[in-house]
Design a protein around this nucleic acid. Structure first.
Lengths: 224, 224
DNA sequence: ATCAAATTTATGATGCATCATATTTGTTGC
DNA sequence: GCAACAAATATGATGCATCATAAATTTGAT
């Protein structure tokens, strides 16, 4: 998943740090509001500030980090408006990915998707929420991968970068029902029904994200 | 248009150089295949290499520039596959933007769109292809702006960054009929018909881009 | 004259020193 | 004790020196 963006990208230290921070964000290891300091990170990683600065500036550019003032770099808080906008974009783009995936999927690729769902069932049975979250995300990325749209993959990767801290925040307490909506997606792909796959992904994003939206609204309203 | 990305972005020299290069790309001042050198640019702009490096690395990340090898930074060539993928994405995203724009547009905003179209007519009458290209692009961005989706705006800006060098290349010789498809868009927005606006934008992207696709296929096939 | 090895040059990567400034802390006068 | 000013500190921005290496050029042997 990490190599979604650097398919042909020259690998320098800055890129390494960038992907490190990406993973940290996606896996929710960085909490919303948390502050990052270039020198501190550089010391922690054993590099100079230059590569860390490279990485952080990149993340700021794609709004995965926010630079409130010149010295204040933080993991941004998600707002309801922003979430709704991202949701609308995801429905369009992941719908496109699902549609193309349904058209293209080989038997082997379908088997891989089934395997992801099976592992996810196991994770839920084990009560391993973190693993469930990770597998949920992997399912979504597997679709783009099967769709064979590398540019789209990059866009979606950056979008998920925004949602990482939020999702980890929300699903740390319950929310194991997000797997349910993957079954219709899988069914549509098995019969190569593109439009049905797109509709199913849309349902997944809308219904599965309901918990997140409620959490956001709850956190926003009684604030202050 | 330049501020599409830096709404809340801290402005440092690197960002300035970045936007400079963005404009150069979008306006087709950098040709596909052209090589960029950090030191040379730094000298030309009168800065040190650091901000230029910042800017170039950002552009490489979003694939607006390509780093073939460690010292070989170039404006990438568009391929047919890539163009088709981007076209599919644009139809979804600009369709969404047009739909929301149709819902939201105030009378004043509609007047602004009409003004853009009028200026475009004038540019065509004057035979000013460059200005026509610019106004075409501004129309598309005005839609996203009216839609009120800042995140989407960023994504689309980066997509247009990819198309800049190509479009300038193609439209330097003819191709003035791209305005025709803006009238149905405008008509749909006037009556706040979202789905019709989305369909009209889809037509615009498909038909208006036909010339580009032909140019690409012609350039690819008898290559070698 | 040709080709290969060696040397030079070009260029991005990295580290780091310095600067400017925002933030914090401490001091002093009321 | 509190407030306002001042010193100290923290931190990102910028410039630049140096390194590693790929590309280009020269040189010399055959």
């Amino acid at each position: 998943m990490t190599d979604a963006l650097d398919t042909l990208e020259h690998d320098n230290l800055g890129s390494t740090v960038y992907h490190l921070l990406c993973n940290a964000l996606i896996q929710g290891k960085l909490k919303p509001g948390e502050r990052l300091k270039i020198r501190e990170l550089a010391a922690r990683l054993g590099t100079s500030v230059t590569p860390v600065r490279d990485a952080i500036l990149r993340l700021v550019q794609e709004q995965a980090l926010a630079m409130k003032s010149a010295r204040d770099i933080r993991v941004p808080h998600m707002t309801v408006e922003r979430y709704l906008e991202i949701r609308a974009i995801r429905i369009k783009l992941e719908g496109l990915a699902a549609e193309m995936a349904a058209q293209n999927a080989s038997a082997e690729q379908i088997a891989q998707l089934e395997d992801l769902v099976r592992q996810n069932e196991q994770a839920i049975a084990d009560g391993d929420t973190a693993r469930g979250c990770d597998l949920n995300q992997r399912f979504h990325f597997a679709l783009v991968d099967i769709a064979g749209m590398p540019f789209l993959q990059g866009i979606l990767y950056r979008i998920w970068l925004q949602m990482g801290p939020l999702i980890a925040d929300v699903y740390s307490a319950g929310g194991d029902d997000m797997l349910d909506f993957h079954y219709p997606v899988l069914a549509a792909i098995r019969v190569h029904d593109g439009p049905a796959a797109a509709r199913a992904i849309s349902d997944d994003i809308l219904c599965g994200g309901q918990v997140i939206l409620q959490h956001l609204q709850a956190a926003t309203a009684p604030d202050a």
